[in-house]
Nucleic acid binder design. Structure first.
Lengths: 193, 193
DNA sequence: CGTCTATTTGAATGTACTCAAAAGCGGTGG
DNA sequence: CCACCGCTTTTGAGTACATTCAAATAGACG
């Protein structure tokens, strides 16, 4: 994803004139991550949000019993980060880790606010972005409460095509809310058809 | 929730000057619902979104096998409606029903767009609103995949205090993704302590 | 008071989990 | 290039959590 492609994707949401687009890039920090490198660790302060230019980031939460729960797999043109901590200034609830070599644009809270202030069209962009994200979160909730593990796994494969090639199965199991052992059994059952 | 209180709640998110606030109310349609009255039926077109002034609205989806899945319980100052259908113009995936006498402010897609255009500060309001909503949806997902039914029920009671007095138990079970029979058993177990 | 719906209860069943052990796989160093 | 190490995946047995189905009880409303 180069600059031109990013601009195009942003303009799919809302038309933003060049000078406001420039502001968006001016306030970004760039960062490259190797596979398995951690971008944000749970407990870190000064939380940022990130736009993924390329690669894949996994966001997960580690609970009191030391179990990991995968919240999101982000790919090109996805945003990641702990929105709650970002807003409140609290420390991050999540760890963000690269599942492949990854490049991101990174915004501190101050940088983000500056972009919105100097380039107000981005309010519309983010409003629509969050609105869409909300819709997909709702769908995920419905699936979680109404589908069997096998159905959830199938749905995952259609919403995240090709991710099984990048991400270890145990993390996909975690994302689906099932044990890695059980996912393995599901796959065997599905293969035998 | 009268007009003054609503304005105050909106201004908790972002300061909006009086003239823009007026636009917000000018484009709203008001509607009162009796208990059990349906505001939107699954399959309806010309979908709206609603701000609840008072009362309680339940949003649910009926699947192909005729099972209901409760997505949301909305109360004072919550927004409801099928955001996806609202945006795309498709027919509603959800039914919205009053669980108690309810008053709402109601926006068609066109009215909503007019508000945003004439009162651009509302872009910020909705951006922050959706942002917060996203955070709570994420938390709900984590609970769904990592908690037992009993833990989910306890969490529900703290996030939705007093709702058990208004809403039949079977709908709460549906919201939690468990059967009404099992919720009944959980409650017995919890009472016996 | 009677009807309709919601809730409770119990028994049988199924789905997914835990624990433990074996097999597979990828990277690293000799 | 191969052998080894660590981590992931598979497999199986036993178990726990939650469901289904059926029937009884309790509550709400006209």
């Amino acid at each position: 994803m180069d600059r031109v492609e990013i601009i195009q994707k942003i303009r799919d949401y809302v038309y933003i004139p060049d000078e406001q687009i420039s502001v968006f890039f001016d306030y970004a920090r760039e960062r490259k991550l190797k596979k398995n490198e951690v971008l944000t660790r749970q407990g870190d302060s000064d939380v940022t949000i990130e736009l993924i230019k390329s690669g894949c980031l996994m966001t997960y939460h580690t609970d009191d019993s030391d179990n990991d729960h995968v919240i999101q797999f982000g790919r090109e043109m996805w945003w990641t980060g702990d929105l709650h901590a970002f807003k409140t200034g609290e420390s991050s609830e999540y760890t963000v880790k690269a599942m492949a070599p990854t490049e991101v644009l990174l915004y501190s809270y101050d940088a983000f606010e500056c972009v919105l202030q100097k380039a107000p069209k981005f309010e519309t962009y983010f409003r629509k972005l969050f609105q869409n994200s909300l819709v997909s979160h709702q769908k995920r909730i419905i699936r979680n409460i109404s589908c069997t593990a096998e159905e959830k796994y199938k749905a995952f494969n259609t919403t995240h095509p090709g991710l099984d090639l990048i991400v270890p199965q145990k993390y996909i199991a975690s994302y689906l809310g099932i044990t890695p052992e059980f996912l393995s059994k599901i796959r065997r059952r599905m293969a035998g058809k």
